[in-house]
Design a binder for these strands. Structure first.
Lengths: 154, 154
DNA sequence: TTTTCTGCAAACGATTTGCATACAC
DNA sequence: GTGTATGCAAATCGTTTGCAGAAAA
């Protein structure tokens, strides 16, 4: 199935857009395409996306990129990330609604961001819910430290 | 002992400053005092601190506040926090170096920030260290959801 | 044809910085 | 005295917004 090999294809985009009263435009299409076609270069900022567009001879304006990222995030197609480097970053939302997403290991030296797929926070969340009555929808975990490479040169 | 009742007194400030080649100034003293004297109003932004200063008839400039906060953070006297509300926030560093700090529960509706004192991440950190070779220095955990009060009105 | 979208440039808010003066050491 | 700190205003950076024209539906 095409759906399983490409979770957020353009048909999905069109559907999600019209469901919420938005229109399908070549700009939105192209911006989403960048995320789909760059699965390796995660964590792209608006500026990153804009630069790739300009490399591709695309005439999409920066404001349009910002607006598209906010929208795709609202539609659940992209997830917004914050690594404390002063700009919002995004990645394709590949998690199904029932699972939480991966954690990030941020190297204090080389600023590299490593993904870590594991979620051991269920116990902690249950604990919080019972103790404080807080209903947890999502969580964000960042670990700061030194990656293998930087440990050597420390 | 005065030290136990006031972890970061002015003597500590003076010492930490001179240790690193900085000077003790009335401005830095006064800014730290605000954090010490407002233990309840945590998570203050530069603007918050500046407003309190102006209430106190203090003539300290906003740029000085920013510079002091950055410095006090660097000296380990303050801890910088980020709740995704577009500005850096700070609180007194009351944790000893061997323990991690508390977590934050951020209400998606009223934006309230609740502190949660518990640290069950040791297992997870150990897991990450062994699996990825990443040396963890610190972590930051944020839980997003709905506080008791907002759950009712949802 | 109606409404939303785009691109540009201007506005924005948080933070930083250059510079002359003032102050801590 | 020497070097750092301050205060102000201007600069910066990421992001948002107003508006007139362009393009989906």
């Amino acid at each position: 199935m095409s759906e399983s090999h490409n979770l957020f294809g353009l048909q999905d985009l069109r559907k999600k857009l019209s469901e919420h009263g938005y229109k399908m435009t070549p700009q939105r299409k192209e911006i989403l395409k960048i995320f789909v076609e760059h699965p390796d270069s995660h964590h792209m900022s608006a500026e990153d996306v804009y630069n790739i567009l300009r490399e591709n001879e695309s005439e999409i304006g920066l404001a349009t990129v910002y607006r598209a990222l906010v929208l795709l995030n609202k539609l659940g197609i992209l997830v917004q990330l914050d690594f404390g480097d002063g700009c919002a970053r995004y990645e394709l939302n590949t998690t199904d609604p029932n699972t939480h997403h991966h954690h990030h290991l941020i190297c204090l030296k080389c600023k590299k961001v490593i993904e870590f797929e594991e979620d051991l926070l269920e116990d902690l969340e249950y604990d919080i819910a019972t103790k404080s009555g807080f209903e947890i929808i999502n969580h964000e975990v960042k670990f700061f430290g030194y990656c293998k490479e930087c440990q050597a040169q420390k």
